[in-house]
Simulated scan of single mutants.
Amino acid sequence: MSTALDVVAGALILAGCLLTLFSGIGLVRFPDVLSRMHAATKPQTLGLLCVVAGAAVRLHRSVDVWMLLLVAAFQLVTAPVSGHLVARMAYRTRHVRTDLLVADELRPALLDAPDGAAVRRRPARTPERGTRRGR
């Protein structure tokens, strides 16, 4: 029975390592930011989940499994959100190759922005009256 669990754990860890490797290759090879964000989040997250599952099968102690579940939950929450935010900022600062987009649903929102601005600009800070700079 122990050898069957070792084979399953090894297969999961190997699959996770391959997915993470393909994610790294995608980061180097893909042409634009949006494709790279896809490669950075999807296969990398699934790869880490496979490695965590393989480690949980191999370790199978209560304390270890709970710690691995926390790692998996943290990864599921942070990686897609951070990838989305980086891709959104890349689009708003016009670092996206629009010739590779199939549908551009955010373009009308950019065109309606004042002065065609992609990024919301903060108003210039003026010194308050009565301060040393304001005099």
Rank of each mutant, 00 (worst) to 15 (best):
M1K: 10
S2Q: 15
T3G: 11
T3S: 15
A4R: 11
L5I: 11
L5C: 14
V8W: 06
A9S: 15
A9T: 04
A9Q: 06
G10M: 04
A11W: 10
L12A: 10
L12H: 08
I13A: 05
L14H: 04
L14N: 04
L14A: 15
A15I: 12
G16N: 00
G16E: 01
L18F: 15
L19M: 14
T20Y: 04
S23V: 02
S23M: 03
S23F: 01
G24R: 01
G26N: 04
R29N: 10
R29K: 15
P31T: 05
V33I: 13
L34P: 00
S35A: 13
S35R: 12
S35N: 14
S35V: 07
R36E: 03
H38S: 04
H38Y: 07
H38C: 02
A40Y: 01
T41S: 08
T41R: 00
K42M: 09
P43F: 01
Q44F: 02
Q44H: 09
T45V: 05
T45S: 03
G47N: 01
L49K: 01
C50V: 02
V51H: 00
V51Y: 00
V52C: 09
G54V: 01
V57Q: 06
V57E: 05
L59W: 09
R61C: 07
R61H: 13
V63W: 07
D64Q: 08
W66K: 08
W66F: 12
M67P: 00
L68G: 02
L69Q: 08
L70W: 08
V71K: 00
A72G: 13
A72K: 01
A72V: 01
A73H: 03
A73D: 05
Q75A: 14
L76I: 06
L76Y: 03
A79M: 13
A79G: 01
A79Q: 02
P80G: 02
V81A: 12
S82W: 03
L85M: 12
L85E: 07
L85I: 09
A87W: 00
A87S: 09
M89K: 13
M89C: 13
A90L: 03
Y91L: 06
Y91G: 02
T93K: 13
T93G: 11
R94C: 04
R94T: 06
V96Y: 00
V96D: 00
T98V: 09
D99T: 13
D99H: 05
L100N: 04
L101V: 02
V102A: 07
V102H: 06
A103E: 14
A103H: 10
E105K: 08
L106K: 02
R107D: 10
R107K: 13
P108G: 05
P108Y: 03
A109F: 14
A109W: 11
A109H: 12
L110M: 10
D112Q: 12
A113S: 14
A113D: 03
D115M: 10
G116M: 08
A117K: 13
A117P: 00
A117F: 06
A118Q: 10
V119H: 05
R120N: 09
R120H: 07
R121M: 11
R121T: 15
R122M: 11
R122K: 13
P123N: 10
A124P: 08
A124F: 10
A124Q: 13
T126R: 13
T126N: 09
T126L: 13
G130Y: 06
T131Y: 07
T131G: 04
R132N: 07
R133C: 08
R133I: 11
G134Q: 08
G134M: 05
